[in-house]
């Protein structure tokens, strides 16, 4: 049970945070439904359960900041300002998708919104985030980068190479490990030489902190603290958000590596329920306002799904387009 402290938060901000978390949850639920109906083909790694991480982190940065995302990236794309219809159309591989149907779930990206992309390779975008940080530093800009990845990625070589580079050069990158306790099926306990993942950043000359990834305000506060340091040139940081993926790794995951009790214990701390309840307790939002928000999001998702389903497939002539920029 999370013990919340009193936080000063405006009605608008509470609505924004709650709404984004609801959008992500309903987006993922809609994909589950579309997969069950065989409308969504291929794989999808769903973010349901982890919403507080993306929403809290994104609430702590500016629009012109960059992010890199992961194979479980729908939440990051939505929280970074992606359009629900365009994202849903991309999941279905449609012409109207944010990547014209060429990326899909694993490659959601919108460079115009600072989202440098989800990634099909675990840990594959950590170098890209580091390079975006180097670019910011070389340009003398005051942007920062949030680099999202999971617990599994902390065991890859590129993670260590990149954190070393960012630590050495004091790059403005906040590395955010969403620790949902499992790689595909192998737990942190079974895969990592240390269970405390904050220790992974220890050799790289940057602060590391753990926070409750089920508490949107805790994530926001932690990210805000290190984002501010990075922005003023104090270099990178490493944050571990403890969280949980409700649907397991992917559609075909039987979840035999974890128990029903464990799943329930995380669902009991659900980030959307907890935050909605807290905002009501603190009289920031009324019960009706929360319920109305839910309905508003449901209508948005219905429209997004409808748009995606009705959108045309990419035209055959798109096949060879976009491989190269025509000079």
């Amino acid at each position: 049970m999370t013990i919340y402290t009193m936080t000063i938060i405006t009605k608008n901000e509470a609505r924004h945070l709650l709404k984004q978390m609801m959008q992500i949850r309903q987006f993922e639920d809609a994909i589950m439904d579309l997969m069950a109906r065989n409308i969504a083909e291929g794989g999808s790694h769903l973010y349901a359960g982890e919403e507080a991480c993306a929403v809290g982190a994104m609430a702590a940065i500016r629009k012109d900041d960059y992010i890199t995302s992961t194979h479980r990236g729908h939440g990051h794309a939505i929280a970074k300002g992606g359009s629900l219809p365009e994202l849903m159309a991309e999941i279905l591989g449609k012409e109207t998708g944010v990547c014209k149907g060429k990326g899909g779930s694993l490659h959601l990206a919108d460079v115009s919104k600072g989202n440098l992309g989800a990634n099909g390779i675990v840990g594959g975008s950590i170098g890209i985030a580091t390079g975006a940080g180097l670019s910011i530093q070389l340009r003398g800009a005051d942007q920062i980068v949030l680099c999202f990845f999971g617990d599994g990625a902390t065991n890859t070589g590129l993670f260590h190479e990149s954190l070393n580079m960012a630590g050495k050069w004091k790059l403005p990158v906040v590395f955010i490990c969403e620790n949902n306790l499992y790689g595909m099926s192998v737990s942190v306990e079974r895969a990592c030489a240390v269970n405390d993942l904050t220790k992974k950043a220890a050799p790289y000359n940057m602060p590391a902190e753990c926070c409750d990834g089920m508490d949107v305000l805790a994530v926001k506060d932690t990210v805000a603290k290190y984002a501010a340091l990075a922005r003023k040139g104090d270099g990178p940081a490493f944050i571990v958000c403890n969280t949980y993926r409700y649907y397991g790794h992917s559609r075909s995951d039987p979840r035999i590596y974890r128990t029903k009790e464990e799943e329930k214990s995380w669902r009991d701390r659900d980030c959307i329920m907890a935050f909605g309840r807290k905002m009501q307790e603190q009289t920031v939002l009324t019960e009706k306002e929360v319920a109305d928000l839910e309905k508003e999001v449901t209508a948005e998702l219905e429209a997004a799904v409808d748009f995606a389903i009705k959108s045309p497939d990419p035209k055959p002539e798109e096949l060879y387009r976009d491989v190269y920029f025509e000079m």
Binding site: Y66, T68, V111, L116, G124, S125, I126, G127, I128, A129, T130, G131, A132, G133, L134, S135, I136, L138, R139, G157, L158, E161, S162, N164, M165, K168
Partner: peptide
């Protein structure tokens, strides 16, 4: 550092951001 993967990854990240 001797970090070939990060050299390429960081090169890419810098290339798509100006």
């Amino acid at each position: 550092a001797i970090s070939e993967a990060a050299i390429i990854g960081a090169g890419l990240g810098a290339a798509i951001t100006g």
